[in-house]
Amino acid sequence: MKFLALIISTFLILSLASQMEARKRFYCLWSTKRTCSKSTPRCIRLQTGVDNAMPTYTCKYYRSDCQYLLDSCKGETSFGLLGTSVDVQTNCVTNGIAIGGTGVC
């Protein structure tokens, strides 16, 4: 009987957690929908090297401003939390970073 209660409790906890994630995603989609461009690409740069004299940067190439704002709202990656917006052509395209990908820039 205790085993059955444990299984049911685990199932309920997992169910509630997935609903919270869905609500967070819906909120992020709703809150960013009117403030973003669906056609403007975005390049986000993050310092990945520890050496401040010669820092190393990694860039992430977002297909659109909306995708970046969604990532930023959800806070799922360090690019969304700590990234700095930089010029798309100079930092992402010139360095051969594919849309949706990351690379050294």
Score class of each variant (00 low, 15 high):
T102N: 13
T35A: 13
T77P: 00
L46E: 01
K33V: 07
S39E: 05
T10M: 15
F11P: 08
Q47Y: 00
Y61G: 01
K24P: 01
I99G: 04
Y57D: 11
L29P: 01
W30G: 04
F26T: 10
S15P: 06
Q47I: 04
V88F: 07
N95I: 00
L81P: 07
Y61V: 00
E76L: 10
E76S: 13
Y68W: 02
Q89N: 12
C105Q: 02
V88C: 06
G100N: 06
V50A: 10
V104Q: 12
Y68L: 05
I99M: 10
G96V: 06
K74V: 03
T32F: 02
L81K: 15
M54N: 11
C28R: 10
P41Q: 07
K60P: 08
I7F: 09
S72H: 10
E76Q: 14
R42D: 00
S18L: 06
L12F: 05
S31A: 03
Q19C: 15
S78V: 13
C36T: 14
L14K: 10
R23V: 07
Q67G: 07
N95V: 00
G80I: 06
K60T: 10
T48G: 03
R34V: 06
Q19N: 13
F11I: 14
R45A: 02
A98P: 03
T32A: 03
G83M: 03
T102C: 13
S78D: 12
G103Y: 00
A53D: 13
L82G: 12
I99A: 05
C28A: 11
S9H: 05
S9Y: 03
R25L: 15
I7L: 14
S85F: 02
C92A: 08
R42W: 00
L82W: 14
D65C: 00
L69I: 06
V86N: 03
I97H: 02
L4D: 07
L14R: 14
T58N: 02
V86R: 00
T10A: 11
S37K: 13
C59F: 02
T40S: 12
T84L: 09
M20G: 07
W30H: 11
Y27T: 07
P55L: 11
Y68A: 04
T84R: 09
A53H: 12
Y68C: 02
T90V: 11
G101M: 04
I13W: 02
L14M: 12
T48M: 08
L82D: 12
F26V: 14
S37V: 04
Q47V: 09
D65R: 09
C43N: 01
Y57W: 08
V104H: 11
A17T: 07
V93Q: 07
A22L: 15
S9N: 11
Q67L: 13
A22S: 12
C66S: 02
L69N: 00
L81D: 09
Y27M: 01
G96E: 05
W30V: 14
G80C: 04
L81F: 03
F11K: 15
K33M: 01
G100F: 03
C28T: 08
S72E: 14
N91R: 04
L16K: 15
F79Q: 05
M20K: 14
